[in-house]
Design a protein around this nucleic acid. Structure first.
Length: 282
DNA sequence: CGTTTTTGACCGGCGC
DNA sequence: GCGCCGGTCAAAAACG
């Protein structure tokens, strides 16, 4: 049986003929170096996140502008073709601000209303077939203020306001898809003027999902943000990335904690001292 | 007991 | 003007 030395991945050379205090200094230096490296990585990561958000905002603005010009053309076309416009389903596949033509009759009947809400977008969420819930977990807290059965869809439509209302103006409507009852169609209106309330896993999942929700406004059931239930299960996001994220967060918080680094240093130096004293007893 | 959800009533816009 | 329809209000009920 071989010796079971703990692999700390810190390149510990216990057989080095130097003294314990010298080793302590090396270890402390190493820890400081790793600490600095972690800080630098954290800063780089946060910078990347900021850049990403800025780019996403620019993309949204560009999409809004693009859609506005499109809707002007569309409205002209609709005026001209109002008599025979019943075959326009799915001609445009951009759903940002709801100005697109979808398979929903209401959008064709009253296109101007949807056009006037530049910050509205839709998200399709896959749920369990048996689930009748109209709750979509997206990292924010919502307060339901109404429910209606609409004409074009037999399943009820739920109306939600952000829990931070009236300071936060965001609203959302959630209704089962007419085509596929296992899909919830969540229509968001407005932008949150605050961060996510829910920490922990909901925050993590929403951060991961923002890359889909924030910029891509899904219209086709093929592009579904899949989730099997209101529980925090994310199907199309690789689990390894979530694990990686969790590990990274844990590592960062641990290495940034001076108590942890001090405890680690003392534990390692204690081990080294034990080892050297055992050798001395030999 | 405070907060959230439910649900019927009400309101305003739109088409006829 | 009237009726339809989507969206909102608000009182009651439910919940923790």
């Amino acid at each position: 049986m071989e010796s079971t030395c703990v692999d700390t991945s810190l390149n510990l050379n216990i057989n080095h003929p130097s003294t314990a205090t010298y080793k302590d200094e090396i270890m402390v230096e190493e820890l400081h170096r790793l600490n600095c490296e972690n800080k630098w990585l954290s800063e780089t990561l946060s910078n990347m996140c900021e850049n990403y958000e800025a780019m996403q905002k620019q993309l949204n603005q560009l999409m809004n502008q693009n859609c506005e010009t499109q809707t002007h053309e569309e409205s002209r076309k609709r005026k001209a073709e109002s008599e025979n416009c019943n075959n326009m389903f799915g001609t445009i596949n951009v759903i940002n601000n709801e100005c697109s033509t979808t398979d929903e009759e209401s959008l064709i009947k009253r296109p101007c209303r949807e056009i006037s809400s530049p910050k509205a977008y839709k998200v399709l969420v896959k749920t369990e077939a048996s689930s009748n819930s109209l709750y979509v977990m997206d990292g924010y807290q919502w307060r339901k203020y109404g429910q209606k059965v609409t004409r074009d869809n037999p399943s009820p439509r739920a109306y939600f306001r952000c829990s931070n209302a009236p300071s936060c103006p965001v609203k959302k409507k959630v209704q089962k898809s007419l085509e596929d009852p296992t899909i919830l169609v969540a229509t968001y209106e407005g932008e949150h003027n605050h961060g996510h309330e829910k920490a922990e896993i909901s925050m993590i999942s929403s951060q991961i999902e923002e890359s889909f929700i924030g910029s891509v406004h899904v219209t086709s059931p093929k592009q579904i943000i899949q989730r099997t239930s209101p529980s925090m299960k994310i199907d199309n996001v690789p689990k390894s990335s979530i694990q990686q994220f969790l590990v990274q967060q844990m590592a960062t918080s641990l290495t940034n904690d001076p108590n942890f680094t001090a405890a680690l240093a003392s534990a390692i130096s204690g081990r080294i001292l034990d080892h050297t004293s055992n050798k001395a007893n030999w």
